[in-house]
């Protein structure tokens, strides 16, 4: 199992996920540092992320959009607040409008990522702290829509198989 544990703390509106990977810390750091690798996993396969700007440095900004099956776009931005390569990354994560401009009213999520060496393998801990319940709601809605669309795609595929059978 890659995911070792997850801790949900509704009182503090925070979430912690611990995962272990069969790769060293330097390698796992690359999946955060290199935007081309990052965009292969940040969004679901049906809503891939494209990072149009990626300043991987403290104070740096990143902009991305996720593209849906029908060409819909959902935009987001990061503001990197701390980097201690290859062990620690902190950033704020928020929503962007169609022009890529931050929508501050939608709130931000603060993420802290730590990577530690466990005998040649890597333990990654991701902590997300939400600003408010409503903001968390917005964040999930985005993810839920993705899930819904993915599920719809799977149903289509099943129906197509049945039609052929």
């Amino acid at each position: 199992m890659t995911v070792i544990s997850s801790t949900k703390n509704p009182e503090a509106l925070s979430f912690i996920l611990v995962a272990e990977f069969d790769a060293d810390v330097q390698r796992v750091w690359q999946i955060w540092e290199d935007p081309r690798q990052l965009e292969r996993w940040w969004g679901p396969p049906t809503w891939p992320a494209t990072f149009s700007q990626y300043e991987f440095t403290p104070g740096g900004e990143a902009f991305y959009y996720m593209t849906g099956p029908e060409g819909e776009k959902a935009g987001g931005w990061w503001r990197i607040t701390d980097i201690q390569a290859p062990n620690r990354l902190e950033f704020d994560d928020g929503f962007a409008d169609d022009d890529g401009a931050p929508v501050e009213a939608m709130g931000t999520t603060h993420a802290t990522v730590t990577l530690e060496d466990i005998g040649g393998r890597t333990r990654m801990t991701v902590q997300s702290v939400f600003e408010s319940e409503e903001q968390m709601n917005n964040m999930i809605e985005m993810g839920m829509e993705d899930g819904m669309k993915e599920a719809a795609g799977q149903i289509d595929a099943l129906l197509a198989e049945h039609a052929r059978a």
Partner: peptide, 18 residues
């Protein structure tokens, strides 16, 4: 719970890349 599902999927994709 929903947010956890999103992250579990991300971790699975990272493992595939690695």
């Amino acid at each position: 719970d929903e947010y956890e599902a999103i992250w579990r999927q991300r971790v699975a994709r990272i493992a595939d890349i690695l």
